[in-house]
């Protein structure tokens, strides 16, 4: 399948968009999905186990020694900035870390394994809210802003509601 995809990529890019089904068709399918839903207790147990594992892995990733230079703000406790290694809010499922290196800022967005951290919009704003630069995360959630002037800024990931202050020393 991957080979077929590589061969035909240009043709797919040039093709007309697949139209979505008519609203009535989608509504009917959604209604049937709801009406006939019969979850099992076993399925629920295995899903809860998966959620617990995901949460454990997420917290473990934030506690890695290599990330000790990152300050992390959890989405659940948006006012708090946690210096690692340290405690992370109990129900946080997204975090934003950054490190200042000279006039550059590099950072990373962390999400639980349920979600991809790729292609998230990251903004760098002046403290008065004015937008300075925008960037997007790579597949691992990493991003960077280069050649900044000394001063105080804010890093934001708007879709996740993550905000973190940044200071570039003179």
């Amino acid at each position: 399948m991957a080979m077929l995809f590589e061969e035909r990529l240009d043709a797919y890019l040039a093709a007309d968009p697949l139209p979505p089904p008519p609203a009535a068709v989608l509504d009917q399918a959604t209604r049937l999905l709801r009406e006939h839903h019969r979850p099992s207790a076993d399925a629920r147990q295995s899903w809860l186990a998966r959620l617990a594992q995901v949460r454990e892995d997420f917290l473990a990733a934030l506690q890695q020694p290599s990330l000790a230079t990152f300050a992390l703000a959890s989405r659940a406790g948006s006012a708090a900035t946690v210096e690692l290694p340290g405690a992370v809010s109990g129900d946080a499922d997204a975090a934003l870390g950054h490190a200042v290196q000279g006039l550059n800022v590099r950072g990373q967005v962390f999400l639980t394994a349920l979600e991809s951290p790729a292609d998230l919009e990251v903004e760098l704003r002046f403290v008065d809210g004015e937008l300075l630069e925008q960037s997007h995360t790579d597949p691992l959630g990493r991003f960077r802003f280069l050649g900044l002037a000394p001063g105080r800024y804010e890093l934001l990931v708007p879709t996740l509601g993550l905000v973190q202050p940044v200071e570039i020393p003179a």
Binding site: A29, L33, R34, H37, S40, A43, R44, S46, W47
Partner: peptide, 15 residues
């Protein structure tokens, strides 16, 4: 997996 466990919104997201 979430849909199978009873999360209807996950099923609708797949749809």
């Amino acid at each position: 997996l979430a849909f199978r466990a009873g999360d209807l919104a996950a099923g609708e997201a797949l749809l």
